[in-house]
Amino acid sequence: AFSSEQLARLKREFNENRYLTERRRQQLSSELGLNEAQIKIWFQNKRA
């Protein structure tokens, strides 16, 4: 489960760009304390 802070950040990123570069995913992973797979799957689900 994502914290409300993490979700807000993911939604902001998604609004700016529906697709993440690998580098951006790595940055978000480290900033949010999530693993890259969690972020990747969140974006895939959000696009679906």
Score class of each variant (00 low, 15 high):
16 E>D: 09
23 R>N: 13
20 L>C: 06
5 E>F: 06
6 Q>G: 02
29 S>F: 03
14 F>W: 10
21 T>G: 09
23 R>A: 15
40 K>M: 15
46 K>E: 15
10 L>Q: 00
17 N>P: 02
6 Q>N: 05
15 N>I: 10
7 L>V: 08
6 Q>W: 03
18 R>Y: 06
22 E>L: 09
43 F>V: 01
47 R>H: 09
10 L>E: 01
45 N>C: 14
44 Q>T: 08
6 Q>R: 03
18 R>I: 10
5 E>Q: 08
5 E>K: 08
10 L>Y: 00
46 K>I: 09
42 W>V: 02
19 Y>I: 11
24 R>L: 09
33 G>Y: 03
24 R>C: 05
21 T>M: 03
39 I>C: 03
10 L>P: 00
13 E>L: 05
42 W>H: 02
36 E>W: 05
38 Q>S: 08
41 I>R: 12
28 L>C: 01
32 L>F: 03
31 E>G: 02
24 R>H: 06
4 S>D: 14
22 E>T: 13
12 R>T: 09
33 G>A: 05
21 T>F: 02
45 N>Y: 10
39 I>F: 01
16 E>C: 12
25 R>V: 15
34 L>G: 01
9 R>G: 07
2 F>I: 11
17 N>M: 04
32 L>M: 07
7 L>C: 14
11 K>Q: 15
30 S>R: 14
48 A>F: 08
32 L>V: 04
23 R>V: 12
21 T>I: 03
21 T>L: 02
2 F>L: 13
26 Q>H: 09
43 F>H: 00
37 A>P: 03
12 R>L: 10
34 L>S: 02
30 S>F: 14
43 F>M: 02
34 L>T: 03
10 L>R: 01
25 R>Y: 13
20 L>Q: 02
44 Q>E: 15
14 F>E: 02
32 L>H: 01
25 R>F: 11
4 S>R: 10
48 A>I: 11
39 I>S: 00
32 L>Q: 00
44 Q>F: 08
9 R>W: 04
12 R>A: 14
27 Q>T: 10
33 G>K: 06
21 T>W: 04
40 K>I: 14
25 R>M: 15
31 E>K: 04
26 Q>E: 10
37 A>C: 14
28 L>G: 00
43 F>I: 01
44 Q>H: 09
23 R>F: 11
36 E>D: 07
23 R>P: 09
35 N>C: 08
43 F>K: 00
45 N>I: 11
48 A>C: 13
41 I>V: 08
29 S>I: 05
47 R>Y: 09
33 G>Q: 06
47 R>W: 13
46 K>R: 14
1 A>M: 13
7 L>H: 05
9 R>M: 07
38 Q>H: 07
21 T>H: 04
4 S>W: 10
2 F>Y: 08
29 S>M: 06
42 W>P: 01
20 L>V: 05
2 F>A: 03
2 F>Q: 03
15 N>R: 10
48 A>Y: 08
